[in-house]
Design a protein around this nucleic acid. Sequence first.
DNA 1: GTAGGGATACACT
DNA 2: GTGTATCCCTACT
Length: 198
Amino acid sequence: MKLRTRKILPKRFYAASALEVAPRLLGKILCHKRNGILTSGRIVEVEAYLGGEDPASHAYRGKTPRNAVMFGPGGHAYIYFTYGNHNCMNIVTGKEGEAGAVLIRALEPLDGIQVMKRRRKRVKKEDLTSGPGKLTQALGIDRRLNGADLTEKPLWTCEESPNQRVDWVATPRIGITQAVRLPYRFRIRGSKFVSRRS
DNA sequence: GTAGGGATACACT
DNA sequence: GTGTATCCCTACT
């Protein structure tokens, strides 16, 4: 991986609503350093989840121990365990007290690809991070990082060039049973690394 | 197409 | 405290 200047995204990047922040996260880079090993990937697919007005959101029925960080200030990680096997990572958005988060659905692997292959027991680059449960496994992210501040190590988000243009499309979210028609899923157009389900 | 897997939330006692 | 329906999924057939 060639070294380029990567700037950590500031807190204010996450201050807007999940619907606004979600497309802006496309093209940004998610990094995790664990045991001295860096793994990272470019965000190519996300979904926005709002608060009380979004029936598909964990925050829809109000604050609980699980979803509490969704109600905190933006710029933190909301990580939960589901289906008995998988962790999913969201990025909390908005101000303290208002719920909202962006689910990271897929990445394009950048750093630590050999480590990802070992963790995933897969060799194809397209199989490493092309789904929300896959990417947390590849990057070694689990619930211990729930609530982590994304402007600091070991888990953070950054960008290579501030004004880069990203060509994206909005489509309905997937894997949910409520509010399935809302176009709250955002993908980089043409990326090979987006998730498969639809 | 579906088995697998475990946490969570909520309705009940 | 217990029962149970559900879940922002993956890997296999």
